[in-house]
């Protein structure tokens, strides 16, 4: 187990290196250097920037130098925790991302828990009662869940809540807590707002995971160990939970590898519609205003979240499945 985790940890810097290059390429992708385009953008909207400030920025990011030196400058500052400065917001990037990152992670984890809490029972019931009313009902629901884009769900719910109850269900905090420091009351307020984006964000994944679990379980339910457990005199439910569900969960846990990135991706869109204070809307705004270093930093943050998520799911899987521990050791 220890060697397994160590091996996983060792690839981490390599992954982050590759991802930082990708993020850097994305920063460089728009034609012209970002300071010039930013100045042009400003000029278009009727404001201007101090010439000295422009020069200082060029110097800081090494914009007159070759790309690899620019990359090196950017990364070495990131390594010491200096994310740089957002031109658009006129604030340090770390200050902009900090709080939003925390809320992004909280929303992601809440969605993950919701997904598993709902998908597990649905998958188990659908598989053990194959071709029953429940099975068909959930199958239909799953199809609809997968087919509906998250922002549609968000828009429809928003509209229904507004037209029927006259309430606006956006944001993660009530106005009085939006900029307040953390306190117990603020956490309570957050939990009251969190469930809606959590449900909206989790619907698609819940449908997918329930379907995967159903298929896995149907495979497992025909295995000889089921017969053996029955022959031992186990009750049907006890054996279903102990053996096939336990075994069918493993591929589900390994599917976290692609599901976590999906949650973070999805949260970007839902957050935009519901106006949530997460890093998603910030990325969108920075991309539209061509504030490329802010955008690059956020993209890299997303990569980091996904990498950490995958790492945790790998460790969790190894903890669950002795065969994987053995293979890795």
């Amino acid at each position: 187990m220890f060697t397994y985790i160590l091996k996983r940890l060792l690839i981490l810097p390599l992954l982050m290196f590759v991802f930082s290059v990708v993020a850097f390429i994305l920063i460089q992708a728009p034609p012209g250097d970002f300071v010039t385009s930013y100045v042009a953008e400003l000029a278009a909207s009727g404001s201007a920037m101090d010439q000295r400030q422009i020069e200082a920025l060029r110097e800081l990011y090494g914009l007159d130098q070759p790309a690899y030196i620019q990359y090196f400058k950017w990364v070495s500052r990131l390594l010491v925790g200096d994310m740089g400065f957002s031109l658009d917001f006129q604030k340090p990037i770390s200050e902009l991302i900090g709080q939003r990152l925390l809320l992004t992670v909280i929303l992601g984890l809440a969605t993950l828990l919701f997904t598993f809490a709902v998908a597990l029972p649905i998958g188990i019931i659908s598989a053990t009662r194959q071709y029953s009313f429940f099975d068909y009902f959930f199958t239909v629901l799953n199809y609809i869940g997968i087919a509906t884009p998250t922002f549609m769900t968000a828009l429809i719910l928003m509209w229904l809540a507004f037209s029927n109850f006259g309430i606006t269900i956006t944001g993660l905090f009530s106005p009085e807590f939006a900029n307040a420091p953390w306190s117990f009351a603020r956490v309570v307020d957050l939990s009251q707002h969190l469930w809606l984006p959590m449900v909206i964000l989790g619907l698609d994944g819940t449908a997918r995971l329930a379907r995967i679990l159903r298929a896995n379980l149907l495979d497992e339910l025909n295995k000889p160990y089921m017969e053996m457990a029955r022959a031992k005199g186990m009750s049907e439910w006890a054996l279903v939970i102990k053996y096939p569900v336990r075994l069918a969960i493993n591929p589900l846990v390994s599917s976290l590898g692609w599901y976590l990135p999906l949650i973070f991706s999805g949260s970007l869109i839902v957050a935009t519609v519901l106006n949530l204070p997460t890093i998603g809307p910030l990325l969108l705004r920075s991309l539209i205003s061509q504030d490329m270093f802010l955008a690059g930093t956020i993209v890299l943050t997303y990569f980091g979240l996904a990498v950490i998520g995958t790492l945790l799911s790998d460790i969790f899987l190894a903890w669950l499945d002795p065969r994987i521990r053995m293979e890795a050791a």
Binding site: L283, L287, G296, V299
Partner: peptide, 20 residues
């Protein structure tokens, strides 16, 4: 594996935003 482990939407967004 590398491509599957990264959230696609931020990349799409960043690339599309780069289109003139």
């Amino acid at each position: 594996e590398l491509l599957q482990s990264i959230p696609p939407i931020p990349i799409w967004l960043a690339l599309s935003a780069a289109l003139p």
